[in-house]
């Protein structure tokens, strides 16, 4: 089961992203649309289409659990889901005053959880299973790391976070909680 983290600046440009595959078992969510779908294999957009319909998770798992081509694990599809969830996030963040917004959006097998810092930077996490406490702890860790990044006078709200130390720390935290 994999997780995708995006950090978005206040103007919604991505400044950091991370893909994390965890070894913990998935509590899989079945998608009803998937089974009713025709095969799209001839289409040039096969990957995207099957992914958006949710078919991938049903058909594309290889026996070895290795590479999953196409399907819901495609990079551009993930980005699209993350971007699409921003609408939901913005709706919720106007009404809720907590920073951690759990499961704000759902798309096929993906659930999107978000964390809004006081300075309006958004952390988005795409995940498959349900793991509220773990995700909250993970976001709290990322928040501390982000505040430390912010304190650097050379960092503005819109600069990409390229620090290898930041990356390592986020990965460590992901390994621990996700």
């Amino acid at each position: 089961m994999s997780h995708h983290l995006f950090i978005l600046s206040p103007s919604d440009t991505p400044i950091y992203s991370l893909t994390h595959s965890s070894s913990k078992p998935v509590t899989s969510v079945s998608s009803p649309l998937a089974s009713n779908l025709p095969t799209w294999s001839t289409s040039a957009f096969a990957g995207t289409l099957t992914a958006l319909s949710g078919a991938s998770s049903a058909s594309n798992h290889t026996a070895s659990g290795g590479v999953r081509m196409g399907g819901g694990q495609d990079r551009h599809v993930i980005q699209m889901i993350a971007n699409a969830s921003l609408d939901a996030v913005e709706d919720v963040m106007r009404k809720e005053n907590t920073m951690y917004l759990k499961s704000v959006d759902k798309f096929n097998e993906w659930t999107v959880s978000a964390f809004i810092t006081p300075g309006n930077t958004k952390f988005l996490l795409l995940h498959e299973g349900k793991n509220d406490d773990g995700i909250k702890s993970f976001f709290t860790d990322v928040w501390e790391l982000y505040v430390k990044t912010m304190l650097n006078p050379f960092h503005t709200a819109h600069t990409l976070i390229k620090s290898p130390v930041f990356d390592t720390r986020v990965r460590q935290s992901a390994k621990k909680y996700l």
Binding site: M99, T117, P118, T140, W143, E144, M150
Partner: peptide
Amino acid sequence: LELMTWRAEYTSKAPKR
């Protein structure tokens, strides 16, 4: 803003904005 809020809220169970 970021640092002040972090200091006030990082121990809290549900940090608030």
